[in-house]
Design a protein around this nucleic acid. Structure first.
Lengths: 200, 200
DNA sequence: CAACGTTGTTGACGGCGTCAACATACACTG
DNA sequence: CAGTGTATGTTGACGCCGTCAACAACGTTG
């Protein structure tokens, strides 16, 4: 069941393209995604994707958007398990964020790398990232109201927090951090320092 | 004077390649650097660079290393002007770091983007980034001894600080931050939060 | 069943990184 | 100062890339 519509020749080629591109990115990096290669893997020709995306960049943008969606879902899921007392929820979110990046390095890189995405402005991509930011702002507001962190502009605080976790994730992915250091310790120290700084 | 050695045909083509590539990256992004284009700008053929670099990636690595050198120099220069009392020196360093990234976005992206650099390990690049880290660790040690920040592992603290400024720089460059927010305010709030969190 | 729009294929084009073969200019030896 | 060797630069070619135009097949709809 759930056997797709299977209408037309291939049957939802668009979704397959995004899915397969994501898989290729995980396996061998974004550079390994070529129209010929992805076509070959899906049993279609090299030009078939052009019926669903205006160009290769548009396909990659769709993959990046899908990445933001997955990350968002993961962050939303986090924190519901923990009791939620104190600022544990924020900490847990930060840790899940970095863990996602470490588990999907190439995908994460694509999500933030404007170079691979032709330096253009892609509204959907900004929107997907924006949803992430809004969620973070919401959580920050909750902690503010509980008096657990300073009552400043939550948006600015969100940017600071986002910067910290994104920076750590990025440095780890790009192997700029000594592989001998304990990632978990560094991660928890980062969130700790951040939260200490945000406290009154 | 300072008219270069002018030995051989071109006269230090290697240095010219790095310089010109850096200029092209500033002007139109890393993708605009092609062997043919850079050769044309320097008046040599497309294959000439191969006498000085094994492949295009090696040339880009040299450009990235040069970027780290410039950034390092700038950070070293910062702080000597300020009186140096309290943690002002650290703050100033962080601000100079982000400013460098904003002034040279494409170059900064190349320095940290492993995708453009073929995901390989480039020892010189790691070394150049390592010099930056060591400098930061040294400054942190000074502040520790003055009792201005917590006495923990300075390396871990350096990673936390680096993550914060790199993350902010990266989000700004990739236009993930609302262009209406005051960059200076956000930058100073980031360093403030960071330093508050590192204080005892 | 006929007309038509959607989807996929094929051939071709220019641009890319790179290599092998060739050409040139300098440096050094006698 | 002649001659030789090596470092440097050029040219032609190859395969891969993204993309487009022309064509073919499919399924739907009247």
């Amino acid at each position: 069941m759930a056997e797709r519509a299977r209408t037309y020749h291939h049957g939802d080629l668009r979704a397959s393209l995004v899915e397969e591109a994501a898989a290729m990115i995980s396996e061998a990096g974004t550079a390994s995604v070529t129209m010929r290669a992805i076509g070959g893997r899906l049993g279609v020709s090299r030009a078939a994707p052009y019926r669903h995306f205006p160009d290769k960049t548009a396909l990659l943008v769709a993959v990046a958007v899908e990445g933001f969606r997955r990350l968002n879902q993961r962050l939303r899921g986090s924190g519901t398990g923990t009791s939620g007392s104190s600022v544990e929820r924020l900490r847990h979110m930060g840790e899940q964020y970095v863990r996602f990046a470490l588990e999907n390095p190439a995908h994460y890189r694509l999500m933030y790398g404007r170079e691979a995405l032709a330096r253009q402005d892609h509204p959907e991509l900004r929107e997907a990232a924006g949803a992430l930011l809004e969620h973070l702002i919401g959580v920050i507001r909750v902690h503010q109201e509980r008096g657990e962190i300073e009552r400043e502009d939550p948006r600015a605080q969100a940017y600071v927090a986002w910067s910290a976790v994104h920076g750590l994730a990025s440095l780890l992915i790009e192997r700029q951090i000594d592989p001998n250091v304990d990632v978990n310790a560094l991660l928890s120290q980062t969130t700790q320092t951040l939260l200490d700084g945000m406290r009154d």
